[in-house]
């Protein structure tokens, strides 16, 4: 259990934070890992702040309590920075990946994030270009993969295509795949 990785996703209802937690977990499972993915259920409504979690480990995961100190935080909506403490429990050597057009440096000074590694990506712009809607979950997965090297992006894209082709039409699938590719190549570091 020493290599247990815990990830917290922040989004707003409708942006796909819960699905993001699951897509990453499904791909990690295909990579031979043990996984958990679960949402933090509150009053569910579009636009309300939502949290979800992914756990990944090379050995079976037994813990069933909430994630309190994730190593990685992914923020799907920059407006959450003003209403919720997205760094809660994130250790000083933790990583935070934020969907915003700002650079990590500008963001750090504006919202006053101390320590931690900050990365940013314009996932909303990418999603609106490729999907015509602000559902930035798949580009944020791609950004996370770029930053962490956790899984091979090609494998995750292939899995997404196979798993979700039943649920979504080809246009949406292809749009998501392009969004992931663009996001993967445009993550900004400090």
């Amino acid at each position: 259990m020493n290599d247990l990785l815990e990830i917290r996703w922040h989004g707003r209802g409708g942006q796909g934070a819960v699905t993001a937690a699951k897509i990453l977990a499904e791909s990690a499972l295909l990579d031979g890992k043990f996984i958990q993915a679960f949402p933090e259920y509150g009053p569910e409504r579009a636009g309300a702040p939502v949290r979800s979690y992914t756990r990944i480990s090379s050995s079976p995961i037994y813990i069933h309590s909430q994630v309190t100190d994730p190593k990685i935080v992914v923020v799907l909506d920059p407006t959450l920075l003003e209403v919720t403490d997205v760094t809660e429990g994130l250790p000083e050597d933790g990583t935070i990946i934020i969907n915003t057009n700002e650079s990590p440096r500008d963001l750090r000074s504006r919202v006053n994030i101390k320590a931690r590694k900050i990365f940013t990506v314009s996932a909303t712009d990418i999603a609106i270009k490729e999907l015509k809607r602000n559902i930035p979950n798949t580009p944020m997965i791609a950004a996370l993969l770029k930053v962490t090297g956790l899984l091979d992006i090609e494998m995750v894209m292939k899995n997404f295509k196979e798993k979700y082709s039943k649920k979504f039409n080809a246009e949406i699938i292809e749009g998501n795949l392009r969004a992931m590719k663009t996001a993967f190549e445009s993550v900004k570091s400090e």
């Binding site: 699951k22 977990a25 499904e26 499972l29 043990f34 996984i35 958990q36 993915a37 679960f38 949402p39 259920y41 079976p60 995961i61 069933h64």
Partner: peptide
């Protein structure tokens, strides 16, 4: 089975 913890949690 425990509601949400197991019912809505994805696992292997």
């Amino acid at each position: 089975l425990d509601g949400f913890v197991i019912s809505h949690g994805m696992e292997n």
